[in-house]
Amino acid sequence: MMDSNTQNIQNRTLIAVSNNQEKSSYEFQVKNQYEFSSKGRKLKVEMVEEADGIMLISCEGVRYPFEIVSIKQNTYEVMVNGVSYTFTIETPFSLKRRQILAAQKPADAGEELRAPMPGKIVSVLVKPGQEVQPGTALVVLEAMKMQNTLSATEAGIVGTVAVKEGQTVSKDDLLVETKKPKA
């Protein structure tokens, strides 16, 4: 009955769902932090830090350099061989929950980036139509003599760019609008 039990870190099923367009997902049975199985295949992972501080992951007989770029709760952005991957880690239940919620909710309108404080736009780093990922720098705002890089928090496609370089903006002025990519 309690298929959603996550009481034990060990021996549970976790699903890594990519935020790429294909939304590819990988399901793993977790034995412990280093041993997993996927589709009946056993996978052993090892992570080592080399003397120069570069981290390497070895699995399936290959060794690749990696970096953990950011962790936002259960969303992990990692780089393997310099390629960035973003995965949200789900349990079978949380995945189902996501589908239920998605079915209930109308399509999200996207995101509006507004000036967090008055200042001057130093540079605009994106153009309408450009695809952005969470963390993609959108504009640089100079305020209180400091350069603030403002970034997207959600993946999307840039709609309106409401400001130009050199323009002065007030607090809460619209800077960039992004739209959700069509599923």
């Binding site: 349990t91 949380s94 996501r98």
Partner: peptide, 12 residues
């Protein structure tokens, strides 16, 4: 704190 689902919230 905001979590994506109940299980993660309880872990939090």
């Amino acid at each position: 704190f905001v979590y994506s689902d109940d299980a993660n919230l309880i872990l939090g």
